[in-house]
Amino acid sequence: MKNRLRVLRAEREWSQADLAERLEVSRQSVNAIETGKYDPSLPLAFRIARLFETSIEAIFTDED
């Protein structure tokens, strides 16, 4: 699953650690999601969407 997490994070000039702190997860989790190694659960995807004030679909797409 592709995502725009890195772009959204860069727009706010947040580091992975900054985003991890806001989401209350480890920096490794943010890195794994950004690089597509790990797809977040629905609750975490909602948390990410809420943080960026957008919808889940605007961040995650099911394209390969």
């Binding site: 209350e24 997860v25 490794q28 989790s29 790990y38 977040p40 659960s41």
Partner: peptide, 8 residues
Amino acid sequence: ETDEFQRH
């Protein structure tokens, strides 16, 4: 563990 990736 509250971090789901670490659990994974």
